[in-house]
Design a protein around this nucleic acid. Structure first.
Length: 1168
RNA sequence: GCUCAGAUGGUGGAACUGGUAGACACGCAGGACUUAAAAUCCUGUUCCCGUUAAAGGAGUGCGGGUUCGAUUCCCGCUCUGAGUACCA
């Protein structure tokens, strides 16, 4: 039979799924190899032809490595929390979980169609509680850690607290907030618990801080720096403003140096490393303190000008600056503070106050955008104060200006106008002196930042060079206590939270306005249900809408917890400890709500709409349970028990007890009771409700912008049925923001190692075996987001001894983007009017003529008498123009428009008149002429709006997955961006048919010969065996495809149908085109499924040895002829043979060559 | 502005450490088969000059250089793409 790709591909995809062919084993004697694709977000649009590019490459690599005897881990999953599903939820009210589920289904179907060898048994989803339990767990570890600079690693926060207990804050060298307290051990112990917690929070690796964030009002959330482009949100393009908010942050800056150093140890593309280096932005310089020239007056607020510097030590009335050119300090003629600098107010003299205030007001008004666009204008204001330059005791004026950023360094600079262009402009503008400090400096028109030459005007540095000078001035400053060498990083701590619904809840609750972790056994903290996915009216995040979503720490005395309490077997209970079980329960529970039991339905009809006088909710979450019915007002839970209750009595009783602790009454009815006497049950409930005291109303949403409510007021505390005071019985407010998009993806490669483990994020054994990712393939857009955060978390986990490698991704490859290739038609329009009704379209060449020729328009009109236009253009062809319009690429073939399909494409093109490339006209009435309509072409992003999206489903339908896989590779080098053009795909398809044909006779019967292979056949085979090895190892997949074509062309010419050759060829090709090869493998008589683990054929160089070579003979470097010579000849013999040859003599023209270069086996060059 | 990557036929691209530039594929042209078309197969296809063939010349963004020999190495420039931007 001819090559029936559809049947073959379906058959093998089914086989692989049924037999779990690609399941990776965590116990193997084989060497491990971990191939990973960057975590996809399952978007609603599904895959376009560009998405699988990296997956195909990684799949080829994985399959190849299996053939080479490696135990390959090649997993796939979904980064399934994210904005699009949430935006959709806001618009439609559909729960993002449902949208996500549907999107994943589409994604999975499309991935399956491509024949990838993923181990699907390890699939993960960041949005499933079984996964995010561990994301929350890692968050807890970060919360419980601080960074000790002395050991250069993260340590337990308990260790720090113990140190405080024993020694106070002395001797702590930590990465922390700027304003930490100094205290003795006794002072520490005298602090209240709250004060201690507040202090520890300043050290934790994840912490709350008032910070300036990119707030996007339209999206109602905070964005990361890399999600903001030019003052607008990357997604959606909404304006972004700066806003102060209390936010969770991650102390990634603690790892800045390690993140930088680590880059030298990993095999990543240089541009990517460079991006990370820039992002980390290390600069080596010095901090210098400039003393105030006069003691500052006490500030109006009464705050003494006496604070601790960011680097420690008392400032005692000095301004600290950071500089990378401390050697230029003798050139300092003024100091500049950022307008936001906290000392500005105090340092401003009364005379200057008006001017400074005006400037601050003005710069505040400027948006980030304006400030960026306007880098030329010099602005600033004099504070009236002066500082003393520590090296020469000169008095230097103090200014403020918005070219100094509050967030970098110390928010203050020493200005050296001779060496820095911004300082230079500023000095010119304000008439400040410009002092040259280098003998070769040219500062007539602009600053000269040179480091060459010798110092002048620099006192003790005069005559020294840059290196000597820098060392000398630093030691001078250190001696004087006025400065020291310092390293500064541009990178800021990462904000870790969004005011959004669809993300991981932060496992934190608040007590006395301080954050505390929930108990580890209460993980996962499950995302609560909300009525709307929007912020509350008071501006709190959507999670604040979850009614009665409060944390109830386990009671301190004899809790009815333990193994028995959570082990319910029925679906009514939300069970939090076992994520796998929870998943089942969730489904069960959803079904329950959709298909309630008859009893529930009957009772609900009686309870709904305040018929009891009180509001009743059904299937409502209380803590980790879902109650059948609940009245929150009165604290009454109504449970209906089916038959399972009897089996579960013990657990249910435990549950009742806990609910009691939390101040709920529980009454139970069984189903039969409700079915038989519904009215009686109703009356009983009503009575019970009336008899119960009013429960205190739920807490008001907190007015705090930080996105959390304050905890329960004291009055809400309940007394337990057992007596005794129950602290926080009403529950503590949870954190209401959720984790950012990068949380779940910052550790996922470890989950794949052991994805079904419910005891740990991955077992020690699994991590010890798989270690790290050997090959990571993905786009470079994640350079400063995912890839940086992942390295950060990995280093932290390493510090915690939870993982074994310092770097998670040893080798990384960026696949290029596949761009769209848009097609255009050119419609005639009037230049000054929007003439959208025009039916006239010019072919590309005609449109071009119009562009170059002034009279062409007239000629065109005369020749074709376009009446409609004549009417509109009023005889003036100058008013006519043509506008390019996107046209669906699916109705264009080789740039030729399918005119019929075009007219049918949209109603407004029904009557289109097309002026074809050859000048003839195609009108709907007159029928088509000979000519073709040529479309214009442009390379753009692939997107629906540009009508240039190619869906892989369509390609697979026409040519099959094997063809698509090979074609995507054939397109060009993996790393390069390139436009998609379906035109070449025929060639690949033909190749596969040709390959298939090698195994078949004229009548398409499978037919092979067992004869011995000829020399030429073996040569072809071994050429490709070696070529594919070389190519795959260096990720040059496109060249292998070409070589496969060459091999098959050669074997076809040789009429080779020998098993000895073709069986090996099947193995070699199988990583590229797995389906067709599996089919042939079985036809060859092998066990189905064994191909994936067959040994890769061994290359034998003997088959490639030639005894003759056609030497190219060049004269003066230009090749003239080829000469066949034996390869056994040595250089001298070759030279003699070449010079002696009649053909060469012809070129020599009787002359004697000046020189003859002979490279054996390569070339002969004769120099005349 | 700075940093990085790239530029080869009509198109995608190949040439791995300096050694026959344009492999392989698309497209195009011509031919075979066919009543015809599709499909398939064969031949040609960097450009210029040349009736064909032979022979010749030019040629890897542009201008120089090193070398017997440069797409490859060096210097300067142009263009394209990406990242980043008052970072002290």
């Amino acid at each position: 039979m001819d090559y029936q790709f559809k049947d073959i591909e379906q058959k093998w995809q089914q086989f692989w799924a049924d037999n779990q062919t690609f399941k990776a084993d965590n116990n193997s004697v084989k060497p491990k190899y971990y191939v990973l694709d960057m975590f996809p977000y399952p978007s609603g649009a599904g895959l376009h032809v560009g998405h699988p590019l990296g997956y195909i490459a990684s799949d080829i690599f994985s399959r190849y490595k299996r053939l080479k005897g490696f135990n390959v881990l090649h997993p796939m999953g979904y980064d399934s929390f994210g904005l699009p599903a949430e935006q959709y939820a806001i618009q439609t009210g559909q729960h993002p979980a449902i949208t996500t589920e549907a999107n994943i289904a589409t994604y999975r179907r499309q991935l399956d169609q491509l024949g990838f060898s993923f181990d699907w048994s390890r699939e993960v989803r960041t949005s499933s509680p079984g996964y995010y339990k561990w994301t929350q767990w890692i968050f807890m570890q970060l919360f419980n850690s601080w960074y000790d600079k002395a050991t250069d690693k993260a340590e337990s926060i308990e260790k720090l607290a113990a140190h405080f207990d024993q020694y106070g804050s002395a001797g702590v060298d930590a990465v922390s907030d700027e304003e930490v307290l100094s205290f003795t051990a006794d002072e520490w112990k005298a602090y209240t618990k709250e004060e201690q917690q507040a202090e520890l929070l300043k050290y934790r690796l994840t912490y709350l801080r008032e910070s300036t964030v990119n707030w996007c009002p339209a999206l109602g959330t905070v964005l990361a720096n890399d999600e903001v482009k030019d003052g607008f949100s990357e997604r959606g393009g909404y304006p972004v403003e700066q806003k102060k908010m209390r936010q969770w942050s991650m102390r990634i800056t603690a790892y800045a140096e390690r993140l930088l150093q680590g880059l030298d140890t990993i095999d990543w593309p240089e541009p990517l490393k460079e991006m990370q280096r820039n992002w980390i932005g290390k600069s080596i310089g010095a901090s210098v303190r400039f003393q105030m020239s006069a003691p500052p007056k006490p500030s109006p607020e009464g705050r003494a000008f006496n604070k601790v510097s960011p680097t420690g030590g008392d400032l005692e009335g000095a301004i600290e600056v950071f500089t990378t050119r401390v050697d230029t300090i003798f050139g300092v003629t003024f100091l500049v503070l950022a307008p936001e600098h906290e000392l500005v107010c105090e340092l401003t003299t009364p005379e200057q106050k008006a001017e400074v205030d005006a400037y601050i007001a003005q710069s505040k008004k400027k948006s980030e955008l304006d400030r960026m666009a306007d880098t030329k204008t010099v602005s600033g204001a004099f504070t009236g104060s002066y500082v003393i330059n520590p090296v020469n005791n000169e008095k230097v004026p103090l200014y403020i200006a918005d070219y100094v950023l509050a967030g970098y360094g110390t928010g203050a600079v020493m200005a050296v106008p001779s060496g820095d262009q911004r300082d230079y402009l500023f000095a010119k503008h304000f008439g400040l002196p410009i002092v040259p400090i280098m003998d070769i400096q040219h500062i007539e028109t602009e600053a000269d930042p040179t480091k060459e030459g010798r110092y002048i005007n620099s006192d003790f540095m005069n005559g020294l060079n840059y290196k000597e000078g820098t060392a000398k001035v630093i030691s001078f400053l250190e001696e004087k206590g006025a400065g020291k060498a310092k390293v500064n990083f541009r990178m800021r701590d990462a904000i870790f939270g969004r005011q959004r619904y669809w993300g991981e809840p932060v496992p934190v609750y608040f007590k006395d306005d301080l954050p505390y972790l929930i108990d580890e056994k209460d993980l996962p903290l499950v995302l609560p249900e909300v009525d709307k996915y929007l912020p509350t009216e008071t501006g709190e995040p959507p999670l604040a809408r979850a009614s009665n979503w409060k944390y109830h720490p386990a009671p301190s005395k004899s809790p009815p917890v333990g193994e028995t309490y959570p082990t319910h077997q029925a679906g009514n209970y939300r069970e939090t400890a076992d994520p796998v079980y929870y998943e089942q329960l969730k489904e069960f529970s959803r079904d329950n709500r959709n298909q309630p039991t008859e009893a529930e339905n009957i009772l609900w009809q009686l309870l709904r709409n305040n018929q009891t006088g009180y509001k009743i909710r059904r299937q409502h979450a209380i803590s980790q349970f879902i109650a059948d019915f609940v009245c929150l007002e009165k604290g009454l839970v109504i449970e209906l028990d089916g038959h399972h209750h009897k089996l579960n009595k013990e657990a249910d009783d435990a549950r009742t007890e806990i609910l009691n602790y939390f101040g709920f009454e529980v009454i139970r009815f069984d189903n039969d009771e409700v079915l038989k006497f519904p009215q009686k049950v109703f009356e009983e409930i009503k009575q019970k409700l009336t008899s119960l005291p009013e429960r205190i109303s739920p807490t008001q949403p907190s007015p705090l912008v930080s996105g959390r409510a304050s905890e329960i007021t004291a009055g809400e505390a309940k007394v337990s049925p057992a007596g005794g005071d129950l602290e926080g019985a009403g529950g503590y407010a949870y954190e209401h923001s959720t984790m950012p998009g990068w949380a779940g993806s910052s550790w996922y490669w470890y989950r794949y190692m052991d994805s079904n483990n419910d005891k740990e994020f991955a077992s020690e054994k699994a991590i010890e075996y798989w270690k790290d990712v050997d090959l990571y393939i993905g786009g470079s857009e994640h350079a400063t987001g995912h890839l940086l955060y992942s390295r950060f978390w990995n280093k932290f986990l390493k510090d915690m001894n939870l993982v074994v490698e310092e770097e998670p991704f040893k080798k990384l490859i960026n696949q290029g983007m596949i761009q769209g290739r848009s097609s255009f038609v050119y419609r005639l329009t009037l230049q000054d009017e929007n003439l959208s009704q025009s039916h006239y379209f010019l072919s590309k060449g005609q449109a071009k003529k119009w562009e170059i020729s002034e009279t062409f328009g007239q000629e065109l009109l005369d020749e074709w008498k376009i009446n409609f236009i004549i009417k509109s253009y009023e005889g003036n062809p100058q008013r006519l123009a043509f506008g390019p319009l996107h046209v669906d690429v699916n109705i264009v073939n080789n740039d030729i428009l399918n005119i019929e399909k075009f007219r049918a494409w949209r109603p407004e093109y029904k009557d289109a008149v097309l002026i074809l490339e050859d000048g003839s006209i195609s009108s709907p009435t007159g029928g088509g002429r000979e000519g073709a309509y040529i479309c214009g072409v442009e390379v753009e992003k692939m997107s629906k709006s540009k009508f240039n999206v190619i869906n892989p489903d369509d390609i697979i339908e026409r040519y099959g997955a094997d063809t698509l896989r090979m074609y995507e590779m054939f397109l060009g080098p993996l790393e390069q961006s390139k436009p998609w053009n379906t035109n070449g795909i025929e060639g690949v398809f033909k190749f596969l048919r040709k390959f298939w044909r090698l195994f078949h006779d004229e009548q398409w019967n499978f037919s092979l010969s067992d004869a011995a292979a000829s020399k030429a056949e073996l040569k072809s085979l071994h050429k490709i065996i070696r070529k594919v090895e070389e190519d795959v190892e260096r990720f040059s997949f496109n060249t292998s495809v070409s070589s496969f074509m060459i091999a098959v062309n050669e074997l076809t010419d040789l009429k080779c149908n020998k098993r000895a050759i073709l069986q090996d060829l099947v193995v070699v090709l199988s990583s590229y085109a797995p389906h067709i090869c599996e089919e042939l493998w079985v036809l060859l008589g092998n066990q189905p499924g064994s191909l994936s683990y067959a040994p890769y054929p061994t290359f034998n160089p003997e088959y490639l040895i030639e005894d003759e070579f056609a030497y190219p003979i060049s004269i003066n470097g230009k090749t003239k002829i080829n000469l066949n010579l034996s390869l056994s000849l040595e250089a001298a013999a070759i030279e003699a043979a070449v010079i002696g040859s009649a053909e060469v003599q012809k070129y020599l023209d009787g002359k004697t060559p000046k020189k003859v270069i002979v490279v054996k086996g390569r070339i002969v060059n004769i120099v005349l």
